[in-house]
């Protein structure tokens, strides 16, 4: 029971991890992208299409090819929305909150439309999703260790690898330091010779691409190929919350995502509670995040603050 719970928590948590790793990269450049839910919707469309394309009629398919194709398409679709967001906020200097919310509306609409239109053709992704849910390490034993650590699909490990790479790059390399500088004080970064626009664009597109895989992962792995619109947007907001919970560090985000995944599935695993009590349990991730946000502002330590210029567009010629 406990093993299944942890296993499922890790699995669901990875959706948040993809989203929050992407959002962290974007926020580090000083852009608060509230379009993450919409971007994840787009990633889901891209991933499902990519997987289906590589799957073909189901003969002579290699799991590797299908998964790779899904990842590439999800990144492409997500990245496209990231580029759109970047174009609006970086080049056109539109309000970031407004642009993000529009992307969320738009993305959710497109996913909803797409899911009803494929419903007509009777395409299901169940067979494709089998390639995603099967363990990356082949047959594994029934002991708790291999169930928790080895029994997941490939994309779970991809999420963790991406998060680790992001954590290292953000904290240990020159690129990460420059990106942090751009997010903290773009004026100073510009004066120091950092190409602010380039950093912002790359982080917006890359972050959105990573978040896009999260959307694809959710439908191809967590729901086993059934497309139910309206869920992924709610998860997207939790991913945004996880960024705060993890204090803008993807490394902490790995643990945080499992905690969030645990809290997310907990209501459906607990017995003996009424519907009303289960609703109250759903508050926990949001409430904990709000609490963390307040606590970090209370202690006001430089290490744990949001990027200083978060939400503020940079226009070089403005003081």
């Amino acid at each position: 029971m406990v093993v299944t719970l942890i296993k499922e928590a890790i699995r669901v948590g990875m959706v948040f991890l993809y989203g929050s790793t992407g959002e962290t990269i974007i926020e580090k450049s000083g852009h608060l992208n509230l379009g993450i839910p919409g971007i994840m919707c787009f990633g889901a469309i891209g991933g499902c299409m990519g997987a289906n394309l590589a799957y073909g009629d189901g003969t002579n398919v290699s799991a590797f090819g299908v998964i790779l194709s899904a990842i590439i398409f999800a990144m492409l679709f997500g990245g496209m929305m990231g580029l759109l967001y970047g174009f609006f906020t970086i080049s056109l200097r539109c309000n970031q909150n407004v642009t993000g919310l529009v992307i969320t509306t738009f993305g959710a609409g497109v996913l909803g439309f797409w899911s009803t239109s494929i419903g007509k053709d009777g395409i299901t992704f169940f067979k494709v999703s089998l390639l995603f849910t099967e363990s990356m390490f082949g047959e594994v034993g029934n002991d708790w260790f291999s169930q928790i650590f080895l029994s997941h699909g490939t994309l779970v490990y991809v999420a963790i690898i991406i998060a680790v790479i992001a954590a290292v790059v953000l904290r240990r390399t020159r690129t990460g330091l420059s990106l942090t500088a751009v997010g903290e004080n773009p004026g100073a970064a510009d004066a120091a010779g950092i190409n602010v626009k380039k950093y912002k664009y790359v982080s917006c597109v890359l972050g959105a691409a990573i978040a896009g895989i999260g959307g694809a992962f959710y439908y191809l792995d967590c729901t086993r190929g059934s497309i139910e619109p309206g869920v992924i947007d709610a998860m997207g907001w939790l991913a945004v919350a996880l960024v705060i919970f993890s204090l803008w560090r993807p490394g902490i985000g790995i643990l945080g995502s499992i905690v969030f995944g645990f809290l997310y599935i907990l209501p459906s695993y607990t017995t003996g509670l009424g519907f009303a009590e289960k609703e109250i349990m759903k508050i926990i991730p949001y409430a904990v995040t709000a609490f963390v946000l307040i606590v970090i502002s209370f202690f006001n330590k430089k290490e744990t603050q949001p990027p200083t210029s978060l939400g503020v567009n940079y226009f070089r010629e403005e003081r």
Partner: peptide, 18 residues
């Protein structure tokens, strides 16, 4: 404490829904 209001209000939306 100068808490980031964008993120806090966003979280409170979902608490309200729950």
């Amino acid at each position: 404490w100068n808490t980031n209001e964008t993120l806090l209000t966003l979280m409170m939306n979902y608490i309200a829904v729950c």
